[in-house]
Design a protein around this nucleic acid. Structure first.
Length: 605
RNA sequence: GGACCUGUGGUGCAGCUCGGAGUGCACGCCGGCCUGUCAAGCCGGAGGUCGCGGGUUCAAAUCCCGUCAGGUCCGCCA
């Protein structure tokens, strides 16, 4: 019995995409989607689900039989007893389709299986929705019957793509000498960061495990333990509110390495991501450029910039240094240009102003690039028309136009505020106005580096850790702790793809003196440090090597590679935004006995 | 914790502004016809707590209040 691997898609190396299925065994000798011209004349057995039935009287019917590889047409003498989603085994002879009846929409469209004997292996009730029907099926219905939804081409492709990505990541990690290590799912509470899922202990009444929000501390302990290079495709749990790109539980590539610096870690991760991308798409990303955090904020108003489109932020503060217009007398004035946006109507513009206010700006100024009118000071040249134009001098308007490069018919949007606010508000509006759909455009990876160690201050004026308190400060910035802690850079870095944060990492602090410095800046005293991180600090007393690592979300990477807006589309059994599993009904109640054993009684709300 | 959108036979929608009999469309389902279809076609049929509760009204899918579920976002995610 000879099997035929699926042909590689045109232009892609044969390594891309899911691996060829193994040789058929058991009840079948061929996969539905792989029956081809080379099988003509052979008797085959295929197994699968009835996708469609087209009857033409008592003695002719076409049966589309589907398995995970695709669909093949079977010609049957009478099919009235067969219904969609019946499980069948078809025995017949492969033949070329009669002249003029080939279907070029179908991979197997040149052939069909004739003289079929159909064995019904199982019947099916009519499915709650038609597979492959035009128009979307409500996602709640799909999730309630996920086991049926998984049969769709979309879910099959996404989940197989996910497996391809996982395999590529393992390949890369293995090649780079990383050891796959499993860390506990039952961990100890660490009262900081994301809210944790709690698991009551039966043996120790009143004590709890928590499900790890990440294997962060465990992998650092592995470094102390001489593992050298660790990785894990790790499930992480965070009891925080859900979003299109966030589930309670998610999967990340978690890695950590000893005796390495930032660039080494980024190289490890870049290789894994490149390997995964190449395996999924056939194209290996050629570059993983680096951009500093401050440049990303300045040019894109975001620390996860989408580089697929321009519309970069322009700083016009200098142009307006001496302006009489009080709204523009701010620490920073930033602008973006919407090409052709001058035709936007007043309602749209008002909505943009509202949007900016909703994002925390004091306001938003819009200016249309027009032909200068007589008496405007810009006769015949490009001028900016706006309700506030009269408050600006002609040279200020000209300066804005020149600095932003606005052309006739464009719309200039300006926000004046604190630098960070102005950037972030316009950065969001840039996305609102210009962001391409997720499945469009090139894949633009970018490393964001030189994050600040602290991100703002809390109510007491204490700096807040931007990442986590074990992040190593930049060696050149240690003196700034005393003078300007908010200016201290961290040896931390994020990997961003098309505006999605894939993950983040850092070099960790392995020396007690630097750790004390950071704890002091954060207002964590010795007692609190011991209470919260005692076992980690204890381990660090016994020879912690310099180390650093990274973690990136596999759900997000796969979603982007699959062109999906929502990570639920690449997760077999996801939960809804309120955390329910519509299929199982989870979360559910425990029996009285289970509660008794755990010593749990409920308080009235 | 908050904002917005959605909820109508099994599925997807229209109907809702301006209240008047569960009205309509497509798919699916059931039965019949049909020998080259492939979202097969034609004919016939069944199928409804208009998410749920309350209110206004002579009368509510439609207006009002509440609530539940799903989605997107803000907060949150060191």
């Amino acid at each position: 019995m000879n099997t035929v691997a699926p042909p590689a898609p045109a232009g892609l190396p044969a390594t891309a995409g899911p691996p060829a299925p193994p040789a058929p065994a058991g009840l079948r000798t061929r996969y539905c989607g792989l029956v081809g011209i080379e099988d003509v004349g052979k008797q085959v057995h295929v197994c699968g689900w009835v996708a469609r039935r087209r009857e033409h009287g008592e003695h002719l019917a076409f049966l589309d039989v589907r398995d995970h590889t695709g669909v093949v047409q079977c010609v049957v003498d009478g099919a009235s007893a067969l219904r969609p989603e019946y499980v069948v085994r078809v025995t017949g002879t492969v033949r070329r389709r009669p002249e003029g009846t080939a279907n070029d929409q179908l991979a197997t469209g040149d052939v069909e299986i004739g003289d079929c004997v159909v064995e019904t292996l199982n019947e099916s009730e009519p499915p709650p929705f038609v597979l492959g029907s035009p128009g979307q099926v409500d996602e709640a219905v799909r999730l309630r019957y996920r086991y049926i939804d998984l049969r769709t081409e979309r879910m099959q492709a996404n989940l197989r793509l996910r497996a391809v990505v996982n395999a590529a990541i393992r390949r890369s990690m293995d090649r780079q000498g990383f050891l796959e290590l499993e860390t506990p799912l039952l961990w100890t509470p660490t009262p900081e960061g994301a809210r944790e899922f709690a698991v009551p202990s039966r043996h120790q009444r009143g004590a709890f495990y928590v499900l790890p929000q990440s294997p962060q501390i465990a992998k650092q302990l592995a470094m102390v333990g001489g593992i050298d290079r660790y990785y894990q495709i790790a499930r992480c749990m965070r009891d925080e509110d859900l979003r299109a790109d966030r589930q309670f539980e998610f999967t990340q590539l978690d890695l950590e390495a000893s005796f390495v610096g930032e660039r080494d870690v980024r190289a490890f991760v870049s290789d894994a991501v490149a390997e995964a991308t190449e395996s999924a798409t056939g194209e290996r990303p050629s570059e993983f450029p680096e951009m500093t955090w401050s440049e990303a904020i300045d040019r894109y108003g975001s620390d996860n910039p989408d580089l697929r489109f321009a519309m970069e932020l322009v700083d016009v503060t200098a142009v307006l240094a001496a302006t009489q217009f009080t709204a523009f007398r701010a620490p920073a004035v930033k602008a973006i240009v919407l090409p052709g946006g001058a035709e936007l109507g007043r309602a749209r513009l008002d909505a943009l102003v509202e949007r900016a206010r909703g994002l925390g700006a004091k306001g938003l100024v819009w200016m249309r690039a027009v032909q200068g009118e007589a008496g405007s000071g810009a006769e015949g040249a490009l001028d900016l028309a706006s309700p506030v134009a009269k408050f600006l001098a002609a040279d200020e308007r000209a300066g804005i136009a020149a600095r932003t490069g606005a052309r006739l018919g464009d719309l200039v949007l300006l926000v004046a505020d604190a630098h960070r606010t102005a950037c972030e508000v316009l950065g969001q509006i840039r996305l609102d106005l210009g962001r391409p759909p997720v499945d469009e455009g090139p894949r633009r990876f970018v490393w964001i580096v030189d994050f600040p160690l602290f991100d703002g201050t809390d109510d007491d004026g204490r700096p807040q850790a931007a990442h986590h308190p074990f992040t190593m400060p930049h060696p050149d910035d240690l003196e700034l702790f005393a003078t300007d802690p908010l200016a201290v850079r961290a040896q931390s870095y994020d990997l961003v793809l098309n505006g999605w944060e894939l993950g983040s990492g850092s070099i960790r602090i392995h020396r007690a003196d630097i750790q004390r410095k950071v704890f002091a800046a954060l207002g964590i005293d010795e007692h609190e440090a011991q209470a919260r991180f005692g076992f980690l600090l204890g381990a660090f007393r016994y020879g912690a090597p310099p180390h650093g690592g990274f973690a990136f979300g596999i759900d997000r990477l796969v979603a982007l590679l699959a062109g999906e807006e929502n990570i639920r589309e690449v997760i077999a059994f996801p939960k809804t935004q309120s955390g329910s599993d519509l299929m199982t009904g989870a979360p559910g109640e425990l029996s009285a006995r289970q509660l008794r054993e755990l010593g749990i009684r409920f308080l009235e709300p």
